[in-house]
């Protein structure tokens, strides 16, 4: 029976085991209707297992998952009509064109879809006759998002929609996702890109080793867990590192002669720069910024969000 609720998704004490390994370990959370909810975590944290259970692809080991008031283990056939899914590493039929692919999925849902509107939304207007195999990675993902929307779903699941894309393609996908947000869709996003979660999500849940370790808006998470500033000095003299350490600040140098310094307040930045100037030491450029979810994740788990952290770019 469908239950009217303010939540699109309610997850209660969900556990998923593969043999003895608990991929998802007793987690609970809820997603309000109309919000963009991001599941943020490194590879193997349990993101995809969780999302695939909610999408009705996998069965839970224990716990209860309700989607639009329906039990996901019992109402698959009703649920699939009301959700749209972009699975992880999405792929489609190689020799079918963009328009034919959308027509195909539209027929699977037995709905009349405004294909032109959908194609416009994902900005694929000049690629409608292109076969899937000839599309670039970014275009494939945009087609995948359009497919997820053919049935005008109430909840859209996007499992790592930008993984493996170059920065330009990633930004193009983000544009599409911002368009979805504007339309007021409930979006469940899994990602290991903190920029993506910060840019798109109303609520972020950080998952590590199958457990949710923090949840809230990106601003709240940063405020609660990383209340400091990050000063970065680029192409520094050898003396600079010594000066900063003498002042008692923690430093993270890299191989490009950049150093990242953690400071508590704006005054500390002035103090460091003055000391460098007084010593006649040099650096090429600097920036000061608030920490992001990457730092929050590092602080909470002691491990990197991605296997390879991006190095600080040398100018």
């Amino acid at each position: 029976m469908t239950r009217e609720t303010e939540y699109a998704i309610e997850v209660d004490r969900l556990t998923k085991r593969y043999g003895d390994f608990p991929a998802v370990n007793d987690i609970s959370f809820s997603v309000s209707k109309g919000e963009v909810f991001a599941f943020l975590g490194p590879n193997g944290a349990g993101k995809t297992s969780t999302v695939e259970i909610i999408e009705t692809i996998r069965m839970p080991t224990s716990g209860k998952v309700t989607l639009l008031g329906m039990d996901v283990t019992k109402k698959k056939h009703e649920i699939v009509h009301r959700i749209g899914v972009l699975p992880q590493a999405f792929s489609s039929f190689d020799r079918i064109t963009v328009r034919e692919t959308l027509q195909y999925y539209s027929r699977l849902f037995s709905v009349k879809t405004d294909l032109d509107g959908l194609i416009e939304l994902v900005n694929l207007g000049d690629k409608t006759k292109e076969q899937y195999k000839n599309l670039s990675g970014g275009l494939k993902q945009r087609l995948g998002i359009a497919i997820a929307l053919v049935n005008d779903p109430e909840v859209v699941f996007l499992d790592e929609p930008t993984t493996g894309l170059d920065p330009l393609a990633r930004h193009e996908v983000w544009e599409v996702l911002l368009g979805l947000k504007k339309k007021g869709k409930t979006v469940f996003l899994t990602t290991h890109y903190m920029e993506e979660a910060e840019l798109l999500a109303d609520t972020v849940a950080i998952i590590s080793k199958g457990k949710i370790i923090a949840m809230g808006s990106p601003g709240e998470l940063i405020e609660d867990n990383a209340n400091y500033l990050a000063l970065t000095l680029r192409s520094v003299d050898e003396k600079v590192l010594e000066i900063v350490q003498k002042l008692g600040f923690g430093t993270v140098p890299d191989k490009h002669k950049n150093i990242r310094i953690r400071v508590e307040q704006t005054y500390d930045v002035q103090k460091i720069l003055q000391a460098i100037k007084d010593a006649g030491a040099r650096y090429r450029s600097l920036d000061v910024r608030r920490p992001n979810l990457e730092e929050v994740f590092l602080k909470l788990t002691g491990e990197a969000l991605r296997e390879e952290l991006p190095e600080m770019e040398a100018e």
Binding site: T56, I83, S91, L108, F109
Partner: peptide, 13 residues
């Protein structure tokens, strides 16, 4: 292997 069947399993087919 390409994940197309996984995608189809989230549709009414």
């Amino acid at each position: 292997q390409k994940g197309v069947i996984r995608k189809l399993s989230t549709t009414p087919i």
